[in-house]
Computed example of a mutant assay.
Amino acid sequence: MVNEFGSTLKRLREQKGYTINQLAEAAGISNSQISRMENGLRGIPKAPTIRKLADALEAPYGELMGAAGYLEDRDGANHAETTPEWATSKDKRDFKKMLEEDGELMFDGIPLDQEDKQRIKDVLTGLFWEAKHMNKRKKNNNGNPDGP
């Protein structure tokens, strides 16, 4: 997953004609961090970092989120492995429930369009799995036998 993200990031950067330093400046991320991502020496970045990279590259956010393993394709196939290995069936059920609640999404009293809703869903996907993983690690560090 890390290598897929890194190679996707590098491909998009090179397509844009950016050096690592140019991308770093455009995204507000250090050049060493970008280099480590591209070379698979850094873990998968968080959703807000991926958003910065996508915006700087004028690339589809979903493509980078998919390469990072956070998203599924529209047909339901995983880009990488969307659901972390440590996720239980209860975790998966909780996640599905969170995403499928059909309330009207609004910002400042204005309903969001589909693109904005998808962006929010993409960010929530990353944050949800990150929070679940952190909670599982906390339980393990407190002596709880339920592990990832």
Rank of each mutant, 00 (worst) to 15 (best):
Y61D: 04
D116K: 14
T83M: 07
Q33H: 13
E38I: 04
L53N: 01
D94W: 13
F128S: 03
D116M: 12
G28S: 07
Q33F: 12
S30T: 14
D73Q: 15
L112A: 04
L71C: 06
A87Q: 02
E38S: 03
K46W: 02
A131I: 12
L57I: 08
A131K: 14
A59N: 08
H79G: 00
D94L: 14
A80P: 00
T88R: 11
G28K: 07
G40M: 10
W129K: 12
N135I: 12
I29S: 01
F95N: 07
A131E: 08
E130K: 14
D94K: 14
D102E: 12
A26E: 12
E100Y: 04
L41T: 07
F95D: 02
Y70G: 00
M106H: 06
E104N: 03
E104I: 08
R74K: 11
R51C: 00
A77V: 07
P45V: 02
A87T: 07
A24N: 04
V123S: 02
D122M: 14
T82L: 04
I110S: 03
K96Y: 08
L105K: 01
M37F: 12
A68E: 07
E101K: 13
Q33P: 00
G126Q: 05
A54T: 07
E100M: 06
E85F: 12
E25T: 12
D91M: 11
I110K: 14
V123A: 05
K121N: 02
H79A: 05
D75R: 14
D75G: 05
D122P: 00
L71A: 06
I34Y: 05
N78S: 12
A87H: 04
A27H: 10
